[in-house]
Design a protein around this nucleic acid. Structure first.
Lengths: 396, 396
DNA sequence: ATTCTTTAGTTAATAGATTTAACTAAGTGG
DNA sequence: CCACTTAGTTAAATCTATTAACTAAAGAAT
């Protein structure tokens, strides 16, 4: 599984330095307020090495010093934090029903965000629109003086694992689009890293990389929207994002959970997407593509048909969660995507199904924590920004 | 997902040397006959570095020189191969219906193998029996003069990701067994690396590491035996084996493929294991645990019940293959396990189902290659030996 | 046959990163 | 006030890979 930020397998002294620098930066990210001594203990590097690298990172605006950390009966250490004042990360999300852009600090704090609900048409028009939004962001006084580390863009479909090409976005009608090349002429002055990734992968990455507190060992993010997909992230200093030989890792919408079930647009029957996805719910309830799904469902109130469809969708989501748990065994499950706006009628059955069908393979061990992101409008864009930081950290 | 052989994230000059040495060794493993110049080109290291490391590896019996490789109008390079004369790797497999041990060369060639069909009883008795078999192996003149790099042991159940403890083997009745500690007193003279892993993980690792020709980018191995599990491997010089937060990666036997289906011993309904596993087939056909499954089925001949059960099991296996493909998108699928002995009545429906239900997510791209190991008696043990080599290569 | 060109591989000097060891800095506790 | 502990810095030492120049060995052209 190709991974964007995995270190290469061999190298020279400069490579070793990059590795150690990234490791030190990663330690501060995961343990804000760590002192040089803490970092040395955790990375197994010597005080001398850590001291030198930290000095360089302070000068370049990647780290800042904080308060003194009292030690029991010894000189206190100086707390270190990611410097959130000198750099900015840009993220953009091309969704089926809108475009979103964000500007983040190194710590993952969103400084600026913008959202339009126009559905994307052609790549060229979308690039024009997105470039406008990004130029407005870039001109905002809040970030105008910061050094931009790059731009990450997410798309609703699989991306080739070895090159930034969107292979297929059925809900946009795009095939084999090298979107960054389409966008670049519109933003000639935006330098730094340019990245393209699948929306669920980026969201998973962001939830992992910008996790509050020590990140879990691994995260699976389930994105339930027009379609359904998932992203997996694991690793310490270099979060690994498996993509698969064709970039299809996490295409769980087409796993079969009901043999002989409903027909899916992919040609098979009983795919998860036939039960839990925007298009399946629209089809089951006769809601037109042009209508807003959330509003249409809210308008129907406490309708029995609606309740049944949402419960069935929720249980299918619960099945997917169980199957992912038994296949990938992540340390945390995160639920996001626009379907979360449909609320408890969908979410509650999913969680209940997951809980009720826990088997006792490992009796007594604690359950996997589940985080529900009720509004994940900017989750993918922020994740794309996180990927920019991970990329830039190796070059810092 | 914790991985055994992933390089740490930071280190000193010695760490860098290990990394480069392992990278050079990995290049020779994947490209037998490569010259120093080939290695330098592939690893991006300089000729000088490669030359020095290769010299050391030749002296230590890890590499051997072969014939001259003619170049177009220049000095020919000297072919390099893994040295299969000076070291030996030991692997052992504790299966539900027998114990297997192998001795391998660095290239994965099996020098010796032994197999007993006694079902394991207690860990202590199993350790006694296994130690006997390994001592016989170790004393064989074929390998007596070789330096032993270590021993890998596989077990039919999840292993904790951070320590060598078998968490649960329902088919053995073992819970939380630190098997290496049980075994060690019986083999006090066996030094080198001692490893414990799940059988499917080890098998996957071996198929990847000892792959004939350039290994695929990633492999998923499906082990269909008394239970059903899978292993995933990916990576170049450091094959990564995701294990999950509890070591449950690949426990696909308990993914739900038929909601509301048959009851499984885990408490849920419609688990894959209720359709495709030794115990499910026995239950469906009324074959006792004490009978040999293959023989009992052969004895019934061309029976309609048997055919139906095997076809249903095969189709369930095909469903699992599809779901794994859409979840992990490996570059290669390998089928193994004792059920493969049941032959085409099971295998053909699995392959046919998989082929028939390919969707056209990425029209026109080539299908994932599938390898069926009809007799995988020693596959897991050999995989465990491969893990020993990967571990030792970092210390070489 | 000789020379030129190309590629393979080795060697000595150089550059660069981390470590070691000694040091300074800054707290607590008796 | 002094002993003790922990944090962090500095200069010398160590070790690794690179650079650049070299030797080695083959084919091609003259």
């Amino acid at each position: 599984m190709v991974s964007t930020f995995a270190p290469q397998a061999a190298g020279d002294l400069n490579f070793l330095k990059k590795l150690n620098r990234s490791s030190i930066l990663g330690t501060v990210r995961r343990y804000p307020g760590a002192t040089r001594a803490d970092i040395a203990a955790r990375t197994q590097l010597t005080k001398a090495t850590v001291g030198g690298v930290v000095q360089a990172l302070l000068e370049r605006g990647w780290l800042r010093e904080g308060e003194l950390q009292p030690r029991g009966g010894g000189r206190p250490g100086r707390a270190l934090y990611l410097d959130d004042a000198h750099h900015v990360l840009l993220g953009a999300d091309i969704g089926v029903r809108g475009l979103r852009v964000v500007a983040c600090t190194l710590g993952g704090e969103v400084l600026l965000q913008r959202y339009v609900t126009e559905a994307p048409t052609t790549p060229e028009e979308t690039a024009t629109r997105l470039a406008e939004m990004l130029r407005v962001l870039r001109g905002d006084p809040v970030i105008a003086d910061r050094h931009c580390l790059g731009l990450g863009v997410t798309v609703p479909g699989p991306v080739a694992p070895d090159q930034p090409i969107l292979r297929l976005a059925p809900n946009l009608g795009w095939i084999d689009v090298a979107f960054l090349e389409v966008l670049r002429p519109h933003l000639p002055d935006l330098d730094g890293a340019w990245l393209l990734d699948n929306e669920a992968n980026a969201a998973a990455f962001g939830e992992f990389y910008f996790h509050d507190g020590i990140p879990p060992e691994s995260i699976v993010y389930i994105s339930a929207g027009s379609g359904i997909g998932s992203g997996l992230v694991t690793g310490d200093n270099y979060p690994l994002v498996p993509r698969g030989i064709q970039g299809l890792v996490g295409e769980i919408g087409h796993t079969i959970v009901q043999p002989g079930g409903l027909y899916c647009h992919c040609g098979n029957r009983g795919c998860a997407e036939t039960l839990v996805s925007g298009w399946a719910i629209r089809a089951a309830l006769g809601i037109a593509d042009t209508e807003n799904l959330e509003a249409a469902i809210a308008a129907r109130g406490d309708d029995a048909d609606v309740n049944a469809v949402l419960r069935r969708a929720g249980e299918a989501l619960g099945t997917l969660m169980l199957n992912l748990h038994h296949t990938l065994n992540p340390a945390m499950l995160v639920l996001g995507g626009s379907l979360m706006h449909l609320g408890e009628r969908l979410i509650e059955p999913a969680l209940a199904y997951f809980e009720a069908h826990q088997n006792d393979l490992l009796r007594g061990t604690q359950r996997v924590p589940i985080k529900v992101i009720h509004d994940s409008t900017f989750t993918a864009a922020r994740g794309a920004a996180a990927q920019v930081m991970a990329k830039a950290a190796l070059e810092a």
